[in-house]
Write a protein that binds this DNA or RNA. Structure first.
Lengths: 250, 250
DNA sequence: CCAAAAGTGTTCATAATACACCCATGC
DNA sequence: GCATGGGTGTATTATGAACACTTTTGG
């Protein structure tokens, strides 16, 4: 860095530029006991959209963290969830998407096995809860055991964020190994556990023989997964062959 | 909006939150006379990275415009390019990616036919110029008629932005109709013009018969393109059948 | 007439999809 | 013993890649 540049940086005043706020929001998916796809929502304790449900997220700390780091921190603070693999989804930046001021949201998607999801509501947010995703004439509904939320009633533009996340995950599932992230145990699973994940995300029933073949081609023959040459009892009626994801690299 | 919420919004002080700056940057690709893939770069007139080359872009005006609008405006102001289809690429947000302060970049990709590219350098930026993209042991080089830039010498993290844009466009070309955006005339083109676009992006020679068949399956039979039932002279040696993109919707 | 661009047909391996059927086990 | 979850084989069709070949046209 030469001297001119040094002088310039000294003079630079941050206030010269009107800045938007930036948040990181996270769309968290998991599978419940029924193998249905679930979404994690949080009830907002503060204005704006007080008492509305929203995806977890919060303001990025400028000069301290990236959007990825902010997303990981907010998820931890609001729900207690840690060590998850976040994928950037899209950045939503309409000036009127937040009534307070211009708030730009960098949205992320996380796929988390239910076992890893011990939700503990944090300070900022209120209740954190999982909802089944149901399609309806009027759009998407989010079902809790005791009540239902319409996507129309979500805070901000979170309806669009969730819709984009669902579209993205459906589009990727057939050619990216996303499904493995939802396995209860990546180091010991059966083909049918994996099949159920695909079925939940695609929302359709798959053919057993064909699923097995494509698993062999795409994940066994490529070395992404390995056959453990062990059988697991008690999953269903018959013992099932066990497999493991080999590369921990994602 | 109830009264409580109104009072809250009144009290909200923007200064309570330290904000990052936000820019929109645009990776513009085109094809030159040799049907080589070209990238548009701009020589910076100001610090930081004065006299370095960078992709066009600039600060988003908070409370006024979205990142998409900022990208379109900056592209127009810096290069004179208008009415292009911008696709969001990724958001880069490392706190140290700009020496001034935390500057988050929402990056976009634009594919523009050369005919539409009448570059007129604007106020903010210096020269705007097209570069051939060349792969080298040391990484990617950008070739102008009279000089060469290494990706190592680009401003900010634009090396990573460009690399991601190249990866993305290569990955999408086989299953998204991106190539049509680079056609000189979407309402009158030959299969071989289209083939050359694919070859430039994939950086390999394609088989004529196979390309023709996949064009028929994916774009003629689906109704995305129509056969104009006319022949065009003078493109090469023999007259060629003309086609048109039917839907203007993208 | 001949090189280069435009266009066609045939083959082969692989992939997706459908369907019929067998095995093991808990109740 | 039979329903259910686990597992296999085979046939059909679609796709991708390779290759050999013909037609047209400007110079």
């Amino acid at each position: 860095m030469n001297n001119d540049e040094h002088v310039f940086l000294q003079k630079y005043r941050e206030e010269d530029y009107k800045r938007p706020s930036v948040t990181a929001d996270i769309v968290v998916f998991t599978l419940d006991e029924d193998n249905d796809l679930n979404l994690l929502l949080i009830k907002r304790r503060t204005y704006p959209f007080k008492d509305c449900w929203a995806v977890p997220g919060g303001f990025l700390k400028a000069n301290e963290e990236s959007a990825e780091e902010a997303a990981a921190r907010e998820l931890r603070e609001e729900t207690g969830i840690q060590n998850v693999y976040l994928k950037q989804l899209y950045t939503f930046s309409r000036p009127d998407r937040d009534p307070r001021t211009h708030v730009i949201s960098v949205a992320f998607t996380a796929l988390i096995p239910k076992a890893k999801l011990t939700i503990t509501a944090g300070d900022d947010a209120g209740d954190a809860q999982l909802f089944k995703i149901k399609y309806d004439i009027n759009g998407i509904l989010f079902l809790a055991p005791d009540f239902t939320i319409s996507e129309q009633n979500l805070a901000f533009d979170h309806k669009e964020i969730i819709r984009m996340a669902l579209t993205r995950i459906r589009g990727r599932i057939d050619y990216e190994p996303d499904a493995f992230e939802l396995l209860r145990d990546r180091s010991e699973f059966t083909i049918y556990e994996l099949k159920r994940i695909y079925e939940s995300i695609k929302n359709e029933t798959l053919n057993t023989a064909n699923f097995r073949k494509s698993f062999q081609r795409n994940y066994l023959n490529t070395g992404y997964c390995i056959d453990l040459n062990r059988k697991s009892k008690n999953t269903g009626k018959r013992t099932a062959e066990l497999y493991a994801v080999k590369s921990e690299a994602r």
